[in-house]
Each structure stands twice: as structure tokens, then as C-alpha cells.
Amino acid sequence: MQNTGSALKAVLLFSYTYTMMATTLIMPIMGNLAIEFPNAGTKIPMLISLPSLVMIPAILLSGYISKYVSKKTVLVFGSILYIIGGFGGGLYDNIDFILLMRTIGGLGTGLIFPLVPALIAQLYQGQEVPKMIGWGNATGSIFGVVFATVTGYLAVMDWHYAFYIYLLYIVLLIAQIMILPHVPPEKQDVAMTKDDKNDGLNWLAWVYVLATLVYMVISMVFIVKTAIFIMEANLGNSANAGIASSVVSFTALLLCLVFGQVFKALKRYTAVVGFAATGLCFFCLSIAQNFEMIIVASLFMGVSLATVLPYMMTTITMVVPKNAQTTAVSFVSTAMYIGQFLAAYYIQAVESFVNGVTRAAFSIIAVQVLIIVVISVVFILSTQSQFDKHLNSSKNLNA
């Protein structure tokens, strides 16, 4: 019987902060770095984009390695890379060196990203799985808000100090080594070997991967275009855009804390509600004539983010064999980042139909999401028996 006490829960929840902090700790000092390296050109924005790019192969590699190496070992190795890449960025005043360190940190983050939800799915059962995943997302959000503020103040004194915050993760690294159980590699786990004849992703899992990709493409439109729209439509300024972003984060944070209860109540319709909230968000943006409507749209987006992604992470571990859970989470994670990349092309395509009018583009997206909601309901009703068949019996949440 695995130890699932409070200490283990704390380690897993804090391990959810890696991805959020990787971006949060660099964003407040981007201006400082642009001043420090005035001739860096495109290398400055690459400080954010390059780690995200290298995360994609690292995520897939993590899923593969976990079949032959303990998840704990991979997680600890990823944490070491994360700390080196983070702290190392402040050691040498050279933009190329900082980019190298950010790349190393991105590799570490990619190795870690799919392992935490996969470990939760392996170590916990029943409603503990969605509850822990929801709490994990909430923990990441809280850390993001707190350390974004701390980093901003530290950067006023010296931008190097922002990189030194990564040293705090040494404490988490030690806790991971001491507290995380040594789960055997998936190919050697006795509890998983009975699934060896069918250790790949089934068609239902690929549906969730595709749904995650589609969702990320659409939801990124809000993140990319809302601030621009607020100023284009004379509904506010950058401060108002910041308020809207905070409303999204705070709403998502609150819902993530109760995601377990939401999932228990809505079951497979959790994602449908999330997509519906996405559609309502873009509908509100399309008719917004004042900043108050932007706030309403932001509330809906917060609901969307707090339901769709945790649902995908939770459910895909339920419908694949135990020895394919890490691989499944890896593909969902990869779909998230590919979706972020494709969002720019999606925005360009939609705006080309409406001559670049942002409000009209929001209307088109709202209609598209409505169609997705209808398709999702039909899909759920027509595939319930297949879903029940694929459910991993040890993780059956009666979803």
C-alpha cells in the first residue's frame, strides 16, 4: 500500500508549480533584460518561447522513459535540470548563456509536466484523483500570483535576484527524494503488466487529445486578443486588461479548489460545461460595449480554464491501461503546447473572414464553440457504453 499521507500530497501539489513558475519568474524582468541587452533583438522574446518549444519533445520523452525508469527518478532528474536552468540564468551576464539556461530549464519542466498527474492517477483512487488535480492547478495559480509580485519587487533591486528564487526548489527536490515512493517502471510494475498486451492509447484517448488541442487553440484567442480588443474598442487601458486577467485567474483558482466536487456532479459533462463557458465568454466579448461586460467574459473564461483542462488530465488516465497513463498524459500535455502554437494561425484565419474586425471574429468563434458543445453532447450520449468499457476499473469514478 502506497503512502498517501499529507506529506506526499504536499510534495505532489507543490510539484504542480514548476510549469507556472517557469514563465512567471521571467515575465516581470523581461523589460530589465531588454535594457540590459539592447542588441539582443528577438532573443529577448525567445526567453519565453524557446523553453516552451523544447518542452514538447521533453514531455513525449518523459512518457516513454517512464516505461523503463521509475517516475520518481525521472521527476528528480527533471527537478535538477529545472533548478540548474533557473538559477543558472542569473550567474552570467550574457543573453546567449541565459537562453541556454532557459533551454535546460525547459527540458526539466517538460520531463516533470506529465509525471505529476500520472503519479496522482497511480497513487490515488476514486474522487481523490480529480480533487488532487484540481488542487494542483490551484496551487500553481497561487504560487504564480505570489511569486510574480515578489519577482517584480526583486527586479527593482537587481534582475539577477529573480533567477535566485529557483534555489527555493532545492527544498522541494529534497522532499521529493525523501517522501515520494519509488514506484517501479511501468514495464516492471506487477499491477500494470496484465495490461501489457494493450499498452497503447485507444481511440477514446485520442479523442481527448484532439479535444485538448482544439480547446487550447480557441482559449488562447482570449489570452492573445482581449487586451488588444479592450484598447481598440476604447473599453479601457492596460490596467483594465490586467484586471480582466486577474478575474480569470481568481475565478479559475476558486473553481480548481472544488474541481473534485464539480467532476463528481457533472461527470462526463464537465468539459461540456467548460466549452459552453468558453462560448459564452466569446459571445460576451462580441457584444461588449463597456468594461463590465469584459469582466463577465473573464468570469466565463475562468470557469472554462478550471474545468476543461483538469477534466482532460483526469479522464484520459481513466480510459487507458495503467501502463499507458503517463504516455496518455504526455500526449495531452503536448496537445496543450501545440495548441498554443497553432492559435496564432487560427486567429489569423478567423480574422481573414471578417477583414480583421476583432468583434466579428469573437462572434464567429462563439458560434464555432456552440457547434462543438452540440457535437460533444451527441458524442457523450452515443459513446457511454464504449466509455464504460474502457474505464480502468481501479480508477472508475462512475463518470
Rank of each mutant, 00 (worst) to 15 (best):
K67V: 00
I80E: 06
I44V: 08
I56A: 01
I112Q: 06
L210S: 12
L167G: 03
G274W: 05
A10K: 08
P57R: 02
Y18H: 14
A205M: 04
I365N: 06
N323E: 10
L391H: 12
N240K: 14
G86M: 01
I56T: 02
P185M: 04
L201T: 09
N94M: 04
N3L: 14
A361P: 02
A175I: 13
F291W: 14
P28D: 01
A361D: 11
F341D: 13
D96T: 03
A118E: 07
G78R: 09
L154H: 04
L53G: 05
R102H: 00
S304A: 10
S249Q: 07
G90Y: 01
V145Q: 03
V54S: 00
A360M: 13
K187C: 05
G356Y: 01
S238L: 15
K67F: 05
V262I: 15
S238D: 13
I95S: 03
G236E: 11
M216H: 09
M157C: 01
M293T: 12
M30Q: 13
L381R: 15
G85F: 03
P28R: 01
S79A: 15
T193A: 14
I95Y: 02
G106I: 01
T17C: 13
P51Q: 09
G88P: 00
N392K: 12
M157L: 10
G274Q: 04
T270F: 02
F282Q: 02
T17S: 11
V209F: 00
A205S: 08
C256E: 08
I84P: 09
Q176S: 15
L172S: 12
L280M: 14
M301V: 08
G134F: 04
S304G: 01
F291S: 14
Y164D: 00
N234Y: 10
Y164G: 00
G110Q: 04
A191C: 08
I230Q: 05
A360T: 07
G31E: 07
S246V: 10
Y166C: 05
N323Q: 13
L204E: 03
A155Y: 00
M157R: 02
I59Q: 05
T42A: 11
L257D: 02
V319F: 09
